[in-house]
Amino acid sequence: MTKILPIGVLLGVTAVWWLAASGSTIFPTPPEVLRGIAGLATDGTLLRHVAASLYRVTFGYGVAMLLALPLGILMGWYRTAFTAFNPLVQMLRPISPIAWIPLAILWFGVSDLSPMFLVFLASFFPMVLATTSGVQLVEREYLWAAQNFGITGFKLFTHVIIPGALPTIITGMRVGLGVAWLVVVAAEMVAINSGLGFLIIDSRNAGMRYDLVVAGMVMIGAIGLLLDLVMRRLEDLKEVRWRYARGR
C-alpha cells in the first residue's frame, strides 16, 4: 500500500497533465518531455547539466549549513546574539536570489561561485531560523536535569542542547535543501553553459523547446525527491526519533 499509493498519485497527475497539454502550443505532453530527456541523455548533456547543478547546490548548501548551524545555536541560546542578529536575518531572508544577481556578478564574476553564492543565500536563512527555534524550544526539564547532574559549558551543548534541538534542526536542513534546489533556476541565470537551471533558461530562449523546459523541471523534481529520501533517513536515527509522537 505504501508503495502503490504514491505511484498511483504520480500516475494520476501525469494523466491529468497529458490531458491538459494535448492541443497546447507551448505546454508539452509527457511523451514529448520523455523524448526530450532521452535526447539529452543520448548526447551526454543531461549528465553534464545534472552534475553541474549537483555540484553548485551541494557546495552552496554545504557552506550554508556550516555557517547556519553554529549561528542558529548561538542565536537560540544567547539572548544577546538573538537580539543582535535576528533583525538582520529577518531583513535578508525574504530577498529573492534574483535581486542578488548583479551583486553576485560584481563579487564573484561569471563563474560557478556566483550560482553557489545564490544557493547559499537562499538555503542559509531557513536553516538559521530552524536551528534557532530548535534550541529555544529545548524543554526546561532537560536543562534542570542537566544542572542537577552538574553538566555545564560545552558538555551541556553537546549532550543536552544539540540533541534536544536536533529534530527541529533536521527539519530545517530538509527545508534548506528544498530551497537550494528551488532557486537553482534563478542561480544558474549566471551560469556558463551548464546546469538544469541553465537548461531551462536556455530552452526558453530557444524558439520552441518547451519539452526541454519541462524536462529540466522534471529532473529537478526527481533529484529533489531522491535527496529528500536521503535526508529523511536522518530522521530515522535514534538521536532524532525520540521526538516523534507518531511513526511513519
Binding site: 544577481i101 548583479p102 556578478i105 564574476g109 556558463i192
Partner: peptide, 20 residues
C-alpha cells in the same frame, strides 16, 4: 572565444568587475 550568456542589464557590471 568563451561566450558567456548574461542578461544585457547585467553586462556593464560584469565588464566593470572584469568578469568578462
Amino acid at each position: 572565444l568563451t561566450m558567456v550568456e548574461l542578461a544585457p542589464p547585467d553586462m556593464p557590471a560584469a565588464l566593470l568587475a572584469d568578469a568578462v
